[in-house]
Amino acid sequence: MGEEEELREKGIKALKMLLFEGSTPGLKGWELKRRLGKDYLAALEVAKVEADKLGLRIVKVEDEEDKSPEKARYVLQPKEPLREAELSKWLRIEEAAALAIIDVELNLRGGMVQRKTVERILTQKLPSWRVKQIIDKLKRLNYIEEDGDILRKGWRMIVEIDEPGLLKDIISKAKET
């Protein structure tokens, strides 16, 4: 088998590995390296081309402390945002709305906000028992992180939400109403 052909096969294997997730979405660089070999980054480039054909893209999420590719997480995302009906398969309406509100609030407060502040904002629209449930679910899904009483953006919030776009749409929606 030629070198080029081998790399292509590795690229497709990488794509399959990213598609079939375990408990946490995506794979770390070191996991890909262990299964694909030293040239895993080249294989990922091939995987990006193959993913593009399927309307997907491979995104690298760097580790906060170690910026090396081995510590980064690689995930698959759609190239286009979801349609409303598709979103409901991921999150319920109130969960999606809470995620959007928390994201905006975190951006307005420089990335940190007290949990009780978020709870106060959300209880204007939802019962408090449901607010607590949703915050815990979003934490579990890595959309937010909790450190003591402080909430921060989780890595999935950073990767999955186009924040300027969301802010713009919320303001323009409010203008419509």
Partner: peptide, 12 residues
Amino acid sequence: ALSKNFYPIIGL
């Protein structure tokens, strides 16, 4: 508004 700006991670 979120759905227009949401790119969820794909995986089975």
